[in-house]
Amino acid sequence: MSLLRDIITIVAVSAGAFFFLAGTVGLLRFPDTLTRLHALTKADNLGLGLVVLGLLPQAASLRDGFKLVSIWLLGLLAGATVSQLIARAARQGESAR
């Protein structure tokens, strides 16, 4: 059983790390604010979700599992809100120009 759990962890965390990498590359390479935000938030939400998913089989108790999931939910909330705020500020900055 523990081998299966370890395999799930390795696959999911690696996939999460890949999404973080993709998001970072997008942040560095994409041409403007909105596309960079797109790359960053999509990849971050999915990356963090996959890392949490991979860590769930390793959680010592149900309580730790809930804590991990709530970290992901808070990350989603913060990421979505902040990207909205930055996008709005970027658009206002453009129309002011």
Partner: peptide, 13 residues
């Protein structure tokens, strides 16, 4: 606005 939404949702948590 989004900020007000967050400021209502996040503080209880």
């Amino acid at each position: 606005s989004v900020l007000v939404f967050l400021a209502r949702l996040l503080p209880p948590i």
